[in-house]
C-alpha cells in the first residue's frame, strides 16, 4: 500500500498531518502500539524538519505485511554536513522556530533512535532525502 502527503515549508499548523494519518492506518492493520509510536515519532520529526528548514516536501509511505518504508523528500537549502546535523544539540533553527519549542537539535537523533534503518542524503541548494524503515 502506497500513501503520499504534501508538506508545506513554514506552515507549522499542518505539521504532523502525515504522522497522524499513518498512525490511523497502522492501527487499522493492527500493528503493535509500541512499533506505531516509534514510526510516528520518526515521521513527525522528519515532517517538522521540512516545515522548519525547507520550502516544500513530500512524504511517501509504503506499507506491506513486514515493514513500513518512508521517504521524505524536500526542496530546500539541503544539509552541508550530515554528520554534524545528526549530532544531538546541533541546530540552525531560526529564533521564531525556537520560540515554538523546536530547534533543540534532537529531531534527527530521535529519528535515528526510533527507525530500524535510516538513510539521509542531501544536495546543498537543492534539497534533502530522508529514508527510513521500521520492521513489524
Amino acid at each position: 500500500m502506497l500513501f503520499k502527503y504534501e508538506v508545506e515549508g513554514g506552515n507549522f499548523s499542518k505539521a504532523g498531518f502525515a504522522s497522524g494519518e499513518i498512525k490511523k492506518i497502522l492501527k487499522q492493520i493492527n500493528i503493535d502500539a509500541k512499533i506505531i509510536r516509534r514510526v510516528v515519532v520518526a515521521l513527525y520529526e522528519g515532517e517538522v524538519n521540512v516545515v522548519a528548514h525547507a520550502v516544500r516536501g513530500t512524504v511517501v509511505a509504503d506499507i506491506d505485511d513486514k515493514q513500513i518504508y518512508i521517504r521524505i523528500e524536500d526542496e530546500g537549502p539541503g544539509i552541508k554536513d550530515i554528520a554534524l546535523a545528526m549530532k544531538e544539540g546541533y541546530s540552525t533553527a531560526s529564533e521564531k522556530v525556537r520560540e515554538m519549542g523546536f530547534g533543540a537539535g534532537m529531531g534527527l537523533a530521535n529519528i535515528k533512535k526510533n527507525a530500524d534503518w535510516l538513510n539521509l542524503s542531501s544536495k546543498v541548494g537543492e534539497g534533502t532525502v530522508l529514508e527510513m524503515k521500521t520492521f513489524f
Binding site: 509510536r37 515519532v41 520529526e45 515554538m100 519549542g101 533543540a104 534532537m106
Partner: peptide
C-alpha cells in the same frame, strides 16, 4: 522542547 518530549515522554 517538542523534540525532547517526542524523544523522552512516555505513554
Amino acid at each position: 522542547l517538542l523534540s525532547d518530549v517526542m524523544g523522552n515522554a512516555e505513554e
